[in-house]
Computed example of a mutant assay.
Amino acid sequence: MLNKHLLIVEDEPDMQQGIKDNLEFEGYTVDVADDGEMALKKITNGEFDLILLDVMIPKISGFDVCKQIRHRGIETPIIFLTAKGEEIDKVIGLESGGDDYMTKPFSLRELMARIKAVLRRTGNSNQPEVETLVTIGKLEVNFDNYLAVSDGQPVKLTAKEFEILRYLLDHKNSTISRDSILDSIWGYDYQPTARTVDNFILKLRQKIETDPNHPEILITVHGIGYRFVY
C-alpha cells in the first residue's frame, strides 16, 4: 500500500469517479472536491501528498485555488487537469505554483506515471524503485527512457506502443478486455474503436514475437481481448 493521500478537484462526475477508482486501485487514499471553495476548505483542513486540480471548476478557478494555497504557505504538489491546451494556459498554471500540467483527453497510464514522477521529484514518494529495463520476447525495453533494442539494434516504438506494453506488463498473465485498454491508454474523453487496439497489438507482435503469426506472448482471448504471457 502506497499510503499516499491525494485530492481530486474535478466537477465532471464521470471524470472524477474514473480517476478516483483508478487511484484507489493503485493503492492511494483519495478525497474529492467538486468546486474551488470546497477544495480550499479541504486543503486547509487536511494534509494531502498531491492534488489533481482541474482549472475550469465552479466558484473559484483552479489557478486561483493554487495561488491562494501557495500564498498560505501550503506547498503540496499540484498537477493541473484541464481541457485548455494553449501554451499560455500551461505557463499560467506553472507560474501560479503548479508542478505539472495535463491536457484532456489524457490516458490514465500517463496520469499515473505523472503522479509517481511528481511524488518522486518532490520527495513525497515512499515507493521502491521499480525495474524499468525488461526483456519482452525479442525486445529489451527501457520504460524510463522510452528505448527499445533487439539484437543490439534500436527498435522504433511509438509512445502509445510503449504505454500499451507497460499496461500489459502491469497486468501480465491476466485477461484484459479491449475496453480496459481503451480507457487506460486513450482516456475517457476520446474513444477510438476496438479495432484500433487490435491494430496496435498486431504491430507490437511484429516487434516482440519470434513468430508473429503464432504468438506466444500477446495471446488473443476471443470475444474479450488479450492475455500478456510473461
Rank of each mutant, 00 (worst) to 15 (best):
Arg114Gln: 01
Val130Gly: 13
Val130Trp: 13
Lys104Cys: 00
Asn22Val: 05
Ile219Ala: 11
Thr103Trp: 08
Ala159Phe: 06
Phe25Gln: 11
Lys84Cys: 00
Gly62Cys: 02
Gln127Thr: 14
Leu111Cys: 02
Ile164Arg: 08
Lys42Gly: 09
Arg166Ser: 07
Ile92Trp: 09
Asn145Thr: 13
Lys156Ile: 15
Tyr146Trp: 15
Glu10Ser: 07
Val65Gly: 13
Phe162Asn: 04
Gly187Ala: 08
His222Asp: 09
Ile185Tyr: 05
Asp198Glu: 14
Glu209Asn: 10
Leu7Glu: 04
Gly98Met: 03
Lys203Glu: 13
Glu87Asp: 09
Cys66His: 08
Glu95His: 13
Gly97Val: 06
Asn145Gly: 10
Val229Ala: 13
Leu7Lys: 05
Ile176Asn: 03
Tyr226Arg: 10
Asp170Ala: 15
Ile217Cys: 12
Val141Asp: 12
Asn173Ser: 10
Glu161Ile: 05
Ser61Asn: 12
Leu168Glu: 04
Pro215Met: 06
Asp211Arg: 05
Lys172Gln: 15
Asp34Ser: 05
Glu12Phe: 01
Thr103Gln: 11
Val118Gln: 01
Asn173Trp: 12
Gly36Gln: 04
Thr103Met: 11
Ala117Met: 14
Ser180Gln: 12
Phe228Asp: 07
Ile74Arg: 06
Pro154Cys: 07
Val65Leu: 10
Gln127Tyr: 12
Val130His: 15
